[in-house]
Design a protein around this nucleic acid. Structure first.
Length: 363
DNA sequence: AATACGTGGTC
DNA sequence: TGACCAAGTAT
């Protein structure tokens, strides 16, 4: 007995989902084999990221880093370059760090014990369950966005999922099919992704329609309850594309453990109140790099939305005048040609700047 | 417990 | 354009 359901009902519910999955489950690249490394890579990439976005990254990644050893031996810069555009770059840094740890301590073998998997950086409860069930068919439950939505509707949860995590985990634990946990977990996620969608759920195609409390109450489109959101600030950033007399451009590498850590960027900083963009850029470059520049024409303004704030990058062409550049507020600095920029990993907002520079050069 | 952490898609 | 969300984890 669980969640008010008799044991016989639970057996039926499991079978309904497994049957549905067999007929309607998605064919995804990482389901073709059971190498825990490949499953691991897919699970990390899929954190907060849609399947459609992940697939090309996943295939390129395994081509470049086919094994844990290949990943461990690679340079972090190359790892980040392979991750460029996927976002949440700590995932790539953690994947790299964990691969090196596995080479050092596990002879490069991915562990099959929950406690050990959970101890790896970047792997939490859901990712651990996803890996252990998919790679080893272990009955470890999951609670990702899809499962939260499916289960919230299934029990007509009257609060946002984040307010009922223990209850939802308990339900996911109780439902999982002990004979076929791999297909059960994958089926649960597929159900959320293709049938029990956030908007316009296709309840007429759902194997759990008869047992879904939200459906039976006619409130499925109102669930799950939305999380409360806080307003996000909007920052204006002055950005410098600094040229020297050889026509090279100055770029810097961001501190490894901060936002966009390890990625390269065009230097700059936040506009202070009552400061012009020109003043801001000149001040920031002196503070961060210790050099004097002349701020020239406006190149482009890039608007970009992150999760918890938005920015307008106001980019100006600048000329290097004097002083020895020093990495004061960053890890490293380099003078590079326009053509060399693509060798470095850049965040998306900076890639828009590079595109603009290429257009200017072509004129 | 609340916040930091990217990007692409939708309406 | 702005708000919201998608295979979450770390602190």
């Amino acid at each position: 007995m669980l969640a008010g359901l008799p044991g016989l009902e639970v057996v039926k519910i499991r079978q309904l989902l497994l049957l549905w999955y067999k007929e309607k489950g998605r064919d995804l690249p990482w389901r073709h084999q059971k190498d825990p490394y490949c499953i691991w890579v897919s699970e990390i990439m899929l954190q907060q990221t849609q399947v459609k976005t992940v697939i090309p990254f996943y295939q390129r990644w395994l081509q470049r880093f086919p094994t844990i050893k290949d990943l461990a031996l690679a340079d972090l810069q190359e790892v980040l370059k392979a991750w460029e555009g996927l976002g949440y770059y700590a995932r790539a840094r953690n994947l790299h760090k964990a691969a090196q740890y596995l080479i050092q301590n596990y002879n490069g073998i991915f562990p099959d014990r929950l406690e050990e998997v959970l101890s790896l950086p970047g792997i939490g409860r859901t990712t651990a369950g996803g890996i252990l069930s998919a790679a080893f068919n272990q009955p470890i439950s999951i609670l990702d966005g899809n499962v939260k939505r499916v289960l919230s509707r299934f029990i007509a949860l009257s609060v946002p999922p984040s307010k009922a995590l223990p209850q939802l985990w308990e339900l996911s634990d109780s439902l999982i099919d002990l004979e076929n946990p791999r297909d059960f977990n994958q089926g649960l996620m597929d159900l959320g992704a293709t049938v029990c969608t956030r908007k316009n759920p296709k309840c007429d195609q759902c194997p759990w329609q008869g047992d879904c409390q939200a459906y039976n109450k006619g409130i499925q489109s109102q669930l799950p309850m939305s999380e409360k959101s806080t307003p996000i600030p909007h920052k204006k950033i002055g950005v410098a594309v600094i040229y020297n007399d050889q026509g090279q451009i100055l770029i810097d590498r961001r501190p490894t453990d901060k936002m966009l850590g390890g990625l390269w960027e065009f230097p700059g900083g936040k506009l202070e109140p009552d400061e012009t963009v020109e003043e801001c850029i000149k001040r920031e470059i002196l503070e961060e790099l210790g050099i004097i520049i002349e701020v020239n024409e406006h190149i482009i303004t890039v608007d970009h939305a992150y999760t918890h704030f938005r920015v307008s990058l106001i980019v100006h062409a600048c000329r290097y005048l004097g002083g020895e550049p020093k990495p004061i507020g960053c890890e490293e600095i380099r003078w590079v040609n326009l053509d060399q920029l693509e060798e470095f990993p850049f965040p998306k907002a900076n890639i828009k700047i590079i595109e603009a520079l290429k257009l200017i050069k072509d004129c």
